[in-house]
Every structure is written in structure tokens, then in C-alpha cells.
Design a protein around this nucleic acid. Structure first.
Length: 801
RNA sequence: GCGGGUGUGGCGGAAUUGGCAGACGCACUAGACUUAGGAUCUAGCGGAGUGAUCUGUGCAGGUUCAAGUCCUGUCACCCGCACCA
């Protein structure tokens, strides 16, 4: 009988939904398991096989957990605010609300077709009022606690999207959405003080189980460095030039200073600077350079010496020239550095180009060739001469600086505060009011949600102004504090806002009194296992940990790290080995695979195609292998015989398989788990029959991967209840090893024979058995045995000359 | 430049962490059943050789009874960050 996958899959999907087997219970004596996958952005293009792979990992684990008796929360939702929807709305004139609803509908039906065991009663949509009300609430709490501020600074601006971007959203100098070059623009921007949490975000990593490369990327992104701040007097003024350095021990080697071109001291003393024209020209030149050009010209240092000012080295009183150069950034440290050309390659290149002295203070390199950044004995350094350990000389120098009152220990982070507003329509309105008298006033909590108003035109203003600014009825309001006429903030929050706390809402999605009930948070938190893409490690993961830690600090969540464990899946590449993209035309549509071959085949294939954590290309023909696998399982019903016990021929294989599949799932080694099931299937066909009990065990092991065919076979065998909640099979360690084993015999490290011995044979017996083998005797003939090795159960090696 | 990772058949990938390299799947070859097959089944399938056997995990050395796995050097590719002071 041919397997009608389409009818079978629909039948069980309906049954699961009708019986609510995947609904998480808020009150349960069972142990809990909260498995989380990154909720999708519902784009118009529909789902991608990459989504299927991303969700299949924890799908398998969640299904296994249910069968192991856990109360499982495995939710799904939609991260629906964002630019693609808005751009689509601009193009078509269809309201983003409508577009979003259509896309969510499309995604939901696709997800259901694959048979994922999500709890559909807990779906969240970040664009719904009942959801974004709480996003705004958290924002106001941050405001209340001083974590929100407004500042006019140079920001990353995408001229194509007409929007300000955070540092995280403009990595590599490219816009994350449209990949245009980012420009720097001076603008009033809302910031979240994420840097205040830099240390907590760093320290929290110690107690969570994230993949090592994920932790490392977070550590690098936060970019903590320790060093010192040093104040250099500027000759002839009361001004001090503050710099940050990680190498205060090289202070005697300073031969010049460098400021960022935008440094405010330049403007302050503009009228006393002799060559202001030259400086202005240089500044203009720098502003023109894109990020790309700046990095391409790394080796070619440029700059201008400030005429009329010199700094004074605080440890030896030497006067040193001050330059401006774009190799010093305003956004890191103090925007100014002390340059030690002998021991910093960038300073070295600058000094060479401008003919500045190079003074060696650490022995060990050849400063006529390049800067020396290694350790060595200190020289030319007064009280530091003779020191050989970096840590000690730094400590001594900081001590001296502190005594003189010209410096102190300091810490710096690469991470910057989070630019939090976007000049766009489709996002959460920032709930504050600008009042002439009172300044910035938060919208009162009881007025939340602050609803997104209707507009006719979603196009952002050409001056980088939000479309909301055009809606007078929205903009004009009265100040909540003094009642005077005031104006609303018209910018919206970035896409990352809603996703920074969605995992908390799943715990209590319909609560109208709070974003989630404390008791429920205590029961479900923290998330036991979170899987998602590597591309979110330096954004979503950092942002959401920050929000969560803040919520913990104000006492509204009971655990301080949201995710106990974090893993990441690898990409599915197109059949051509390239990253899938519409423009390359190599995108595989999961719907087509489900329609042609079935959901079980799709699910099995995305996990079988390779190591879950690595990228692997899609192969049209390999999918068929999984189709055969599913069909062959179905066909087992033709060779099934009565009996609940294991048969003699297959007992060991079953115990081995249960062990291997159980362990592989825990380690996300899904490809080898499926391979093991395939091996067992081959063995069953070799034996020619299978007992009912064996087949039941087989489909239990199969259920997480291919639940539809598994459920159908289970039902045909008369299995009790739904397989989805049947008990996960157990194995007996003692029965995972055959009574007799095959052991390879090597002579001088070369394989010469294979012998069969009892599994617990002694070394003597094993070697004696090996020597009795005709082939072995042939090779040992006329030789002296030097050494005999038996690794129990593994191998015999006889060394002879 | 810094940090991390990966190199194994025609292809995707296995290898209990030092113990039979190539599990499992695809593709391919031969055969069976078919009017036919992009269906199914059987057998074969790293390379060389009729064979016993030899050889083989990017490359060159080394340690070991034994190396894909450990050590030294080297090459290539991928990912992340990037003038971070």
C-alpha cells in the first residue's frame, strides 16, 4: 500500500490541535522545560527552508522532552514591526497593519503544515496594542530609572532608508537593511544607556551555557579594556587634555599627541590656533570619507599639526606637539591619545610620515623597522627603568600618576549606547512629550498604549523626519505635567525593541495587568534552551539580555539571565553552495517540498543534511533519500509480527539505537541520530520481520523527527493514546553490547585479520585467540614477538620482528 | 592586522576523542522485476593492481605498538571584529 503522506499529515495535525497536546500547562507537577526559538519576521516572501531548520532543532528536543514527561513550553510568535513591511506599504499603498496580518496568516499556515509542536494559544505579535503597550511600559521604566537620554551627536545614518541606526545595525559601515554606505550625521537621538550594563552583560556570561563562539563574540563586542586616564596640561592655558591609554607604562616614550578631528577642544580654542584654515580643510576631507575608505587607507596616515599649542608630559615636563588625525576616533576613549611611536604601530607610521622622534622605552624590538609591542626591560623611563613585567610597570606608573593627581585607572568599552529611535512609521511610538516648560515628560503609565495613529502617507520626510510628524492630531497634545500645549515625540522605536522581551510575554500572553505574572515567571523562567542564528549574537542577544537585566534590577522578573543555554544553527545554502537569496534565484520554498514529498521528509532532511551548527547546501536529490526512509518505515507494517518483546536478532541493536538517538538529540547531533535510525531500519529489513513491540519503540524514536508517519504507524499498531505523549523508550546499558564481538588484529600496526571473541575476554585469551588465527600465524612466522597489546573490545596489536 | 573555525571519496557528511578511515545518505555501475520509469529490490562503489598486497584524511616533518585525531612548521578557505589607543 502506497503511503499517502498528505492525508496522514493533515489528519494528525488536526488531531494534535483538537486535543491540545502541545499546550503548556501553567500548573503542573511535572518538571518544566522552556524551549525557545527566535520568532520570525513575517516578510511577504513567506518562509524559507532556513526557518524550518532553525525551528526543527528545538522542535525535536521539545517533542522528546514531552515524551520524557516534561511540561513543555515551546511557543511561537511574530516580530512584525520593521522596515520591509513599511517599504512594501509605501510601494503598494496597503496599510502595514493589513500587510502584517496577511503575512502572519501566511507564516502560521506554513508553520502548521510542517507539524511543529508549537503552543498556538500563546502566539504573540509585537505590533498588537496588548503587546506594545508593555514594550512602551518597559521604556518608561527605563526612562524613570535614568537609562534613557537624548543627545545631539554624530550618528550612523542611512541616506537610503532615511533612518538613524545603532552601532549594532551598521556593522561594517553598511546599513543592515539595504546595505548602503552609512554616513555620519549630527542629530538629536534617543539613547538607551546599555553601556551602564556592560559589566553585568560580561559577567553574566560566566554562569550561562552558551556555545563558546557565541560567548566570545559577545565578549568582543562589549570590548572591555583596562588602562588609565591621563591628563596632559596644554601649555599656556588652564586646559587639560584627557587621554585614555592601555599602556601608561610607556608614558616616557610619548613624542606627540593626537586628537580626533571632531574633538571639541579645537573649536573651543579656534581663535588661538594658528592654522585653523588648514584644520578646517582637513576636517572637511575626513567627513567626506566613507567608513569603507577610512578602513582601506589604514596604512596611509594623514593629519595636521595644531599650530600654537603644545602638551606637557606630566611625568617629565617635556613639551610635545599636538596633531589631529582621523585614525583617532571621537567615539572611543576620550577622543584623544598620547602617541608612543616606538611601541604602537599606528603611532609609528604616523611618526615616520611626519618625521617625529621615536623613543624606545621597552627593550626587545628593533624600532628602526617597526613598533615593538611585546614585553621587555624598561629603559629611558626614569623610575621605571629596570622593570621587566608589564603589569608591574603599569601599576607603578598609575601609582605615580595618582600621587601627582594627573591620572587614574580607567576602563573602556567598545560597545556604545544604543541609538534607540527611528524616523519611521511602523514601530512603537516613543511615549514621551516635549513641553516648553517641563522639557521631556513621559506619557503617564495609565495612558498606555500610546497608539500608532493612522496616516495616509508612510513616506519618511526628506529631512529625516518621521511620518508621524505630519499628523497634527498626534503631535499636538497637552503636557501631562503642567497641562500646557506640548508636542509628542514622533520617532518610533527600532525593530529590536519588541524582540527584547517577547520570551517573557509567552509565559503569560493574555495578562492585562502586567507584562507577565510573577508566579508564572518564577515557574517558567529562565529559558532552558534558546536556539537561533549567529547573526543575532551581537544584537538581539545583547539587547534582550540588557532589557532583562534591567527588569531584574527593578524587581519585576525573578531571574537575572534570561537564557540558560544558547545554541545556533548553520545556514542552509542554495544548491549552488551560495547563500540563498531572491536575487540569485536559489531559494528553496518549504511549501513546495511539503506538497511534493511531505512534511516528515522536509523535517528529516533539514536535520540530516549535515552538522546542525554548520552551513550545508541544499540538494534536490538528497531529499529523496529521506523520502525513501519515510516510505520504508511505512512499509514496515507489512513485515510486522505479533509480540511485544525484542527479538533475539534485534535486541542489542535496539538498545544501542535508543542510547545513541537519545544522546545525539541532546547534543544536537541530529544527522547521526537519523543515520542511526536508518542503520537500524536496514538491519530490520535484513532480518525480514519486526515485532509490534519493536516497531512501537522504533516510531517513538522517530517521532521527534517525523511525527506524522510515526503517529500513523503507532495508531495502526493499536498504540495507546497519542504517540506525541507516549513514553520515551529506555535502554539497558548492559544490553548495548553484543555477547561476542569482532576484534581487529594488527601486526606491526597493519590490519591482518579479524577474530570473534567473547566481549569480556581477558587479554591473554584474546591474544591467544588472535595467535590461533591462520592468517595471523602466517604473518608471525619466523618472527620474534616484541610486544602484545589488547585494548579491551577495541583492537589487538602484535609487534614482531 | 586581531580573534574564532574548517580542510576526509564524484557530492553532503561519519569516526565511541589515540584503536578496522569513509557510518548514513546522494550520485554512479551491473543485475532483477517492469510495455515504460526520475518507482522498487539485489550486488558493487576512495585510488592502483588479475591477485596476495600496496596506498590514502590540504602539505612537510615528529611523537606512538597504533595518528583524520596529539606536537612543530606550512598552505588554502570560511566567519566575526577591525586605525578600540
Amino acid at each position: 500500500m502506497k503511503y499517502d503522506f498528505s492525508a496522514v499529515e493533515q489528519k494528525w495535525q488536526k488531531k494534535w490541535e483538537d486535543e491540545g497536546v502541545f499546550h503548556a500547562q501553567d500548573n503542573s507537577d511535572k518538571p518544566k522545560f522552556y524551549g525557545l526559538v527566535e520568532f520570525p519576521y513575517p516578510s511577504g516572501a513567506g518562509m524559507h527552508v532556513g526557518h524550518i531548520k532553525a525551528y526543527s532543532g528545538l522542535e525535536v528536543i521539545s517533542r522528546k522532552r514531552r515524551m520524557q514527561g516534561y511540561n513543555v513550553l515551546f511557543p511561537i510568535g511574530f516580530d512584525a514591526y520593521g522596515l520591509p513591511t513599511e517599504n512594501y506599504a509605501i510601494k503598494t499603498g496597503i496599510h502595514p497593519r493589513k500587510v502584517t496580518d496577511m503575512n502572519i496568516e501566511k507564516f502560521s499556515s506554513q508553520l502548521k503544515k510542517v507539524g511543529f509542536s508549537f503552543d498556538w494559544t500563546r502566539v504573540v505579535d509585537t505590533t498588537e496594542e496588548s503587546y506594545y503597550k508593555w514594550t512602551q511600559w518597559i521604556f518608561l521604566k527605563m526612562f524613570e530609572n535614568g537609562l534613557v537620554f537624548r543627545d545631539k551627536t554624530l550618528v550612523n545614518y542611512c541616506p537610503s532608508c532615511k533612518v538613524v541606526l545603532s552601532n549594532e545595525d551598521s556593522q561594517g559601515g553598511k546599513c543592515d537593511i539595504c546595505h548602503s554606505d552609512i554616513v555620519q550625521k549630527s542629530k538629536d537621538v534617543w539613547y538607551l544607556r546599555i553601556t551602564e550594563y556592560a559589566d553585568k552583560l560580561l559577567q553574566g556570561l560566566d554562569k550561562v551555557d552558551y556555545l563558546p563562539n557565541i560567548k566570545l563574540q559577545q565578549v568582543n563586542w562589549i570590548g572591555k579594556s583596562t588602562g588609565a586616564f591621563v591628563n596632559f596640561e596644554i601649555d599656556g592655558t588652564d586646559e587639560k587634555m584627557k587621554i585614555y591609554t592601555t599602556r601608561p607604562d610607556t608614558l616616557f616614550g610619548v613624542t606627540f599627541m593626537v586628537m580626533a578631528p571632531e574633538h571639541p577642544l579645537i573649536d573651543k580654542y579656534a581663535d588661538k590656533i594658528g592654522n585653523m584654515d588648514e584644520i578646517e580643510a582637513y576636517r572637511a576631507e575626513c567627513a567626506k570619507k566613507t567608513e569603507f575608505e577610512r578602513t582601506q587607507l589604514v596604512k596611509d596616515k594623514t593629519g595636521v599639526c595644531i599650530d600654537g599649542f603644545e602638551a606637557i608630559n606630566p611625568v617629565n615636563g617635556k613639551k610635545i606637539p599636538i596633531y589631529i588625525s582621523d585614525y583617532v576616533m571621537m567615539g572611543y576613549g576620550t577622543g584623544a591619545i598620547m602617541a608612543v611611536p616606538a611601541h604602537d604601530q599606528r603611532d609609528y607610521e604616523f611618526a615616520k610620515k611626519f618625521g617625529i622622534d621615536i623613543i624606545e622605552v621597552i627593550k626587545g624590538g628593533d624600532i628602526s623597522v617597526e613598533a615593538y609591542t611585546g614585553d621587555g626591560e624598561m629603559v629611558n623611563s626614569d623610575f621605571l627603568n629596570g622593570f621587566t613585567k608589564k603589569a608591574e610597570s603599569i601599576e607603578k606608573m598609575v601609582e605615580v600618576l595618582q600621587e601627582k593627581g594627573v591620572g587614574e585607572k580607567g576602563v573602556q568599552y567598545k560597545m556604545k549606547d544604543w541609538a534607540f529611535n527611528r524616523q519611521r512609521y511602523w514601530g512603537e511610538p516613543i511615549p514621551v512629550v516635549h513641553c516648553e516648560k517641563c522639557g521631556i515628560v513621559p506619557v503617564p503609565y495609565e495612558e498606555l498604549p500610546l497608539r500608532l495613529p493612522e496616516v495616509d502617507n508612510f513616506q519618511p520626510g526628506s529631512d529625516g523626519e518621521s511620518p508621524l510628524a505630519k499628523i497634527d492630531s498626534f503631535v499636538n497634545c497637552s503636557c501631562p505635567k503642567c497641562g500646557a500645549p506640548a508636542k509628542r515625540e514622533t520617532d518610533t522605536m527600532p525593530q529590536w525593541a519588541g524582540s527584547s522581551w517577547y520570551f517573557l510575554r509567552y509565559i503569560d500572553p493574555h495578562n492585562t495587568e502586567a507584562f507577565a505574572d510573577m508566579d508564572k515567571l518564577k515557574y517558567w523562567g529562565p529559558i532552558d534552551w534558546y536556539n537561533g542564528g549567529m547573526e543575532h549574537v551581537t544584537r538581539h542577544l545583547i539587547y534582550s539580555r540588557f532589557w532583562h537585566k534591567f527588569l531584574y534590577d527593578i524587581g519585576v522578573v525573578p531571574f537575572d539571565e534570561p537564557y540558560s543555554k544558547r545554541t545556533a544553527q548553520g545556514l542552509i545554502l542554495g544548491p549552488d553552495g551560495e547563500k540563498m537569496s531572491k536575487s540569485k534565484g536559489n531559494v528553496v520554498d518549504p511549501n513546495e517540498v511539503v506538497d511534493a514529498l511531505g512534511a516528515d521528509v522536509l523535517r528529516t532532511y533539514v536535520l540530516f543534511m549535515g552538522d546542525y551548527e554548520k552551513a550545508a547546501p541544499w540538494s534536490e536529490s538528497s531529499v529523496k533519500g529521506c523520502k525513501r526512509f519515510i516510505d520504508r518505515i511505512w512499509n514496515l507494517l507489512e513485515i510486522v509480527k505479533d509480540g511485544e518483546d525484542y527479538s533475539k536478532e534485534l535486541e542489542t541493536s535496539f538498545h544501542k539505537t535508543i542510547k545513541k538517538v537519545s544522546e545525539d538529540i541532546e547534543n544536537m547531533k541530529f544527522n547521526t541520530a537519523i543515520a542511526t535510525l536508518m542503520t537500524l531500519l536496514n538491519e530490520i529489513y535484513e532480518v525480514g520481520s519486526i515485532t509490534k513491540g519493536e516497531l512501537k519503540t522504533f516510531v517513538k524514536l522517530l517521532d521527534p523527527f517525523a511525527p506524522h508517519v510515526a503517529e500513523e504507524v503507532w495508531a495502526q499498531l493499536g498504540g495507546e493514546g497519542l504517540l506525541a505523549v507516549a513514553q520515551w523508550p529506555e535502554f539497558d546499558e548492559a544490553k548495548t553490547v553484543d555477547a561476542t564481538i569482532e576484534v581487529p588484529v594488527q601486526i606491526c600496526g597493519k590490519l591482518r585479520a579479524t577474530i570473534t571473541i567473547a566481549k569480556d575476554s581477558s587479554a591473554e585469551d584474546a591474544i591467544a585467540a588472535a595467535k590461533a588465527d591462520a592468517k595471523v600465524q602466517e604473518f608471525l612466522d619466523g618472527k620474534n614477538i616484541i610486544k602484545e597489546i589488547y585494548v579491551p573490545g577495541k583492537i589487538i596489536n602484535i609487534v614482531a620482528k
